[in-house]
Design a protein around this nucleic acid. Structure first.
Lengths: 219, 219
DNA sequence: GTCTATAAAGGGATAGAC
DNA sequence: GTCTATCCCTTTATAGAC
């Protein structure tokens, strides 16, 4: 009986067998669209309910208030954009089998492809704008994005140095420098709306430049 | 008669003999405080008028609408924070007389001191959050901040290479790399509220590291 | 769980006197 | 330029029926 009810109200089970209400998903999707488009303060719960084709009372039955809904949207967005699977540093193969230049190039390619995407930029804007008022939001974003990259690269640089492929004295500092060489100031220009998403060729060039510059420091 | 009226209504003339209404200044200051604290969408014109101890009608007599007021706040904030005067690249002395390492160190120190300040971070958050909806705002911020730094550093790197002090083939690209080595990912951590303003000693270390790393690439 | 209806408050913008 | 007073609309959140 209980299982039948779950089957009816949850048409789209997600991996891990966690049942997610389709109405809840619609609300989160609608809220995400409107928060990104209009900002947090200028988005009304009315508009979210209308966009989700759901009554306002239903919104409040899933989320206690506007802030909780915002947090839900960001959690969803962050986890759906992590993209760990495609990362060259996240495979099972021996990372020291690939030349560092090639490895760093691939990592930069992966990271830049994700963070220069239009959708990422729009999410980024909202997170930046609201992280002053939602401290936990900044932490969630960091852990699911830049923080994860830094950690992963730090580990790689340590391993590559241990294998004699690189000459990195402080892997943490070096990872931060590589991060800076990759993303700046392109990320800033994108966020400020001063340029559009780069082409694949441009991303390729930026990645190669970042890897090359990094190797001149630690090669 | 007209001069007398100006003298009465403008108690605080600014350098350049441009008279600025004290009420207008109060409005801009109040709006800046509230926009930073609550975001653009969640800040009301009522609240701004109250914070400025001014009637709402007075706000509308100085700024046509909320957007115009926001633009005014950002223009003021950007110009007041440029800090060009203290920049080592903006003095009259011969820039090639100083060793590049020392010069880059001083530049990084100057830039990092400005952009890691609490006030800058708070402004930065608002600009990021709203630049999707106010394209001109992103441009204004860029021109008065990062864009100016990049341009200035690009010029310096070209001059230093011409003088035989550096070996920079592409000054524009190199300036962007120096920018990345300086500000990332500390700027991101600050914006996300994950850490507080660094100490003077930390800024000093970051500046030295950036200059040192850059010279390993182009020294 | 979901809806319609509504309460209670606050939003942007304006009119007209001084 | 500045103020008081106000229009008209939208907001968040809740009540009560189904």
């Amino acid at each position: 009986m209980a299982e039948a009810a779950i089957a009816i109200t949850n048409e789209l089970p997600v991996p891990g067998n966690v049942p997610v209400s389709p109405k809840r998903m619609a609300i989160v999707a609608a809220a995400g669209k409107l928060f990104v488009g209009n900002g947090f303060g200028a988005t009304s719960m009315d508009a979210i309910a209308a966009e989700a084709n759901v009554s306002k009372r239903t919104v409040y039955s899933h989320f206690d208030n506007k802030e909780a809904l915002f947090a839900g949207v960001m959690e969803e967005a962050c986890t759906s954009q992590r993209g760990e699977e495609g990362c060259p540093l996240n495979c099972d193969a021996d990372i020291t089998a690939v030349p560092p230049k090639e490895m760093l190039h691939q990592v930069a390619l992966h990271v830049l492809t994700i963070i220069t995407a239009q959708q990422t930029t729009e999410l980024f804007r909202v997170v930046m704008g609201e992280s002053g008022r939602f401290p936990e939001l900044g932490r969630t974003f960091w852990d699911n994005g830049p923080g994860w990259v830094l950690e992963t690269v730090t580990d790689y640089l340590g391993a590559a140095t241990a294998a004699g492929l690189l000459n990195v004295d402080d892997p943490k500092k070096a990872a931060r420098q590589f991060f800076g060489l990759m993303v700046d100031p392109i990320k800033l220009e994108l966020t400020l709306g001063l340029r559009g998403e780069p082409t694949a060729a441009e991303v390729e060039t930026m990645s190669a430049d970042a890897a090359e510059a990094f190797l001149k420091i630690y090669g």
